[in-house]
């Protein structure tokens, strides 16, 4: 009965919706890598910061997460700009291993500040209950999943559109592709990098708010999601925005099917298995032309 089409459709839909959240998170990580060449190992902690902001607002001033979503995005945008200005900007031109060490340190710092402030207890923001019944397809989709998935997808596509068509987005792409040329053309490269990191942080913050209505989380949840993001990036191609979007959806889909047919613990391992598999089968070309691969 697992093979019934309604079950398959159910799994596919909930997988895609869960995958949209991965996509939102991974696209931010990928944006920073593509523009600055920095792999931000603290990206997961930025997401958790968003989740805790959502939890605080819900718990103490009784605000709905969807109301605080733009606020959190604004706050994290500002935080991202400051991080870029004070920390990441110092890494431009230094080797990527240096930037790995710094963002790793940042990740440990933020995670443990989180533990100091909020302890290791799991929290959640149970605002949405029940499901939507789609009568035409005879499907039930849980409300939090539908809302979080739809917003993730909308945000990811919106930011993609911004990068592609808006003047500032084009400046970001110019800095990514030809920093020297961009500078000559009068683009304030440092400003553009700040904006880039800000956007990525805002995306992580949004992912955190949406995470808070979907799952329970603790300060240590960020690392798990970061590893999933890497699986997404390796599948979709590092530096490639649309690739990360598709990779995220794919990961969500595979996880849902593995979870549906086997068990949930295996679903958790899927990301790592995919990572290993891709590394084994396609070691070349994953980073595009950025790096030669031996």
């Amino acid at each position: 009965m697992l093979w019934e089409s309604s079950v398959l459709l159910q799994l596919a839909l909930s997988g895609l919706l869960a995958g949209a959240l991965y996509a939102l998170l991974a696209c931010g990580l990928n944006l920073v890598f593509g523009v600055m060449g920095v792999i931000n190992l603290a990206h997961g902690e930025l997401m958790i910061a968003g989740a805790f902001l959502s939890w605080l607002a819900y718990r103490y001033i009784d605000l709905h997460p969807l109301v605080v979503l733009p606020l959190v995005m604004g706050l994290l945008y500002g935080f991202g700009v400051l991080l870029q200005r004070w920390l990441i900007e110092r890494l431009t031109g230094r080797d990527e291993l240096t930037s790995l060490l710094v963002t790793y340190g940042l990740s440990i710092l933020l995670m443990n500040l989180g533990l100091l402030l909020f302890s290791a207890d799991f929290r959640s923001v149970p605002v949405l209950q029940g499901g939507f019944y789609l009568s035409s397809l005879d499907l039930v989709i849980s409300k939090p999943r539908a809302v979080a998935g739809a917003i993730s997808l909308a945000l990811t596509l919106g930011i993609f559109g911004f990068l592609r068509y808006h003047r500032m987005g084009k400046a970001i792409r110019a800095v990514s592709e030809q920093p020297e040329v961009a500078m000559i053309c009068g683009i304030d490269v440092a400003k553009v990098r700040q904006m880039t990191f800000g956007i990525a942080a805002a995306m992580a913050g949004a992912a955190g708010v949406l995470l808070s209505i979907l799952y329970s989380f603790s300060p240590e949840t960020g690392g798990e999601f970061l590893l999933k993001c890497f699986a997404v990036l390796v599948i979709g191609g590092m530096g490639n925005f649309l690739g990360a979007l598709l990779g995220g959806l794919l990961l969500g889909l595979v996880e849902a099917f593995v979870g549906g047919f086997f068990n949930v613990q295996w679903a958790e391992a899927v990301a790592y298995l995919l990572l290993v598999l891709v590394l084994l089968l396609r070691p070349g070309g994953l980073l595009g032309q950025r790096h030669a691969v031996f």
Binding site: I39, L41, E96, L97, L100, G223, L226, L227, F230, Y272, L275, V276, L279, L280, P283, L286, L287, R290, H291, A292, V293, F294
Partner: peptide
């Protein structure tokens, strides 16, 4: 064997979650 054939940050990423695993 799996990760050191690759250049750049792959090795670091692969080692990242290992202690936790």
């Amino acid at each position: 064997l799996l990760t050191l054939r690759l250049r750049g940050p792959y090795f670091a990423i692969a080692m990242l979650g290992l202690n936790e695993v």
